[in-house]
């Protein structure tokens, strides 16, 4: 089944409330996806060459401080490392390829979840309400976010198989549905040098879109190609540093509802997870139609 959620807060003055507004959305959609969850939040890391890297290590008691020290020693790059449970956040001017290469050599059990100047991704196994509590989602401040609650149907339950999936920088995607042709899509992308980390169908869609964007297309044009190339059921919610984008496939079997007020745009699989939002009674509500691209920019 799976649940998807997204929130974009329009006035800067209210972005400190993102976590408080989105956490009940995720708790509620735990009914649709109780086995794992994830959240991608966007807030600029600052000017200059700094990037934020989200890291994950499922090994209990993993010593993040040790990783930070080793990083500075080996790479001679500045590092601002903070960690909570399985999640590490590294802010550094290091080039992403260099970090990946260093991680796979020195800390192969640590996975790089996201890279960018705005994105941060949390994901883990367990009930979404528990995960939100574990990582303090209620305290997060950001301009926008997308989240997912998973009920696995086609590949393993693991933190790596949880959504959001990321590819490239400052791009992520969550998916409700299942694709029928992820393997043929993967084979075509692999021939063009695109690497995969899991056997999950959603990863194929995510990497397909990022590859098209890297080739010069806008996300919207990449989605028009996806309407032709992706076979299967999907409601996809995506985010970049600047926007939220939502589409449903031609059959529109997987639900979505959008609520918009002057303060926010909220997207969810079901209205009941939006019912607590301020001003929801007077929000403009609609159900997105099949194969239409909905995009909201900051």
């Amino acid at each position: 089944m799976c649940g998807i959620i997204g929130l974009l807060i329009k006035p800067e003055s209210k972005r400190s409330q993102l976590g408080e507004w989105v956490t009940p959305m995720m708790d509620c959609m735990g009914d649709r996806g109780p086995d794992s969850a994830g959240l991608a939040v966007f807030s600029p890391v600052g000017d200059g060459p700094l990037r934020r890297f989200s890291l994950f290590c499922g090994r209990p008691g993993f010593d993040w401080t040790e990783l930070g020290k080793a990083f500075e020693r080996d790479t001679a790059c500045e590092a601002d490392l903070s960690a909570i449970e399985n999640h590490g956040r590294l802010v550094s001017p290091i080039a992403p390829e260099r970090l990946e290469e260093w991680l796979s050599r020195e800390f192969p059990s640590v996975h790089l979840l996201s890279t960018g100047r705005s994105i941060e991704v949390y994901k883990d196994e367990g009930h979404p309400a528990e995960i939100a509590e574990r990582y303090g989602f209620a305290g997060l401040a950001a301009s926008h976010c997308v989240g997912h609650t998973r009920m696995a149907t086609e590949s393993a339950v693991s933190p790596a198989h949880a959504h959001p999936f990321t590819a490239g920088e400052d791009f992520c995607l969550v998916h409700n549905g299942s694709l029928s042709n992820p393997w043929s899509l993967r084979r075509r992308l692999q021939k063009r040098g695109v690497d995969f980390e899991t056997d999950n169908d959603t990863e194929a869609a995510c990497r397909f879109l990022e590859w098209r964007m890297r080739e010069g297309e806008s996300l919207e044009d990449a989605l028009k190609a996806a309407f032709i190339e992706l076979d299967g059921f999907y409601t996809l919610l995506m985010a970049t540093a600047e926007k939220l984008v939502l589409v449903r496939d031609a059959f529109a079997c997987k639900p979505a509802v959008v609520a918009e007020t002057e303060d926010y745009v909220a997207v969810s699989s079901e209205f009941r997870s939006l019912a607590h939002l301020p001003g929801i009674r007077s929000a403009e509500l609609f159900e997105p139609v099949p194969e239409e691209i909905y995009s909201w920019s900051l």
């Binding site: 079901e270 209205f271 009941r272 997870s273 939006l274 019912a275």
Partner: peptide
């Protein structure tokens, strides 16, 4: 019925 709040 008050506060149906999208319940099924």
């Amino acid at each position: 019925i008050l506060n149906p709040n999208g319940l099924h």
